[in-house]
Amino acid sequence: MSIYPYCVAAWLMLAGAYGIVRSRNMVHAVVCLSVCQSGTYVLLLAVGYQHGATAPVFGSTTTPNRNVVDPVVQAMTLTDIVVSATVTALLLALAIQVNKRQRTVDPNELVALKG
């Protein structure tokens, strides 16, 4: 089963999307979006993994060698997490604004655009 970790990533993304589809609360939908995004972390880290390799951090005990997991995808995962956190913050602020104006956080009850 060499594609199992990739399938976990796909499952996380689809499960998060399912949560957004079934969501009755905007905060819940934002958390579901975070679940979706964590699928991309798993995918990136799975792409960079190598059996028996160590972390891409060297020191006095580990001399530089090439037998490490891919540091580039790890750096991209870090970028991904930062972007995910900013998106979450913005969406939560939007949810607060919607609740203030419409007095509800249920997406099903938002019927008309209001200025």
């Binding site: 060499s2 594609i3 199992y4 970790p5 990739y6 399938c7 796909a10 799975a46 792409v47 960079g48 993994y49 190598q50 059996h51 891409p56 530089p64 090439r66 490490v68 997991v69 891919d70 540091p71 580039v72 995808v73």
Partner: peptide, 20 residues
Amino acid sequence: FLRMPAFGGTVHLYRDLAVP
């Protein structure tokens, strides 16, 4: 996924450039 490089394999082109 079935056509991707196998999980845990030793071919990591970016790694080979980034580490040196």
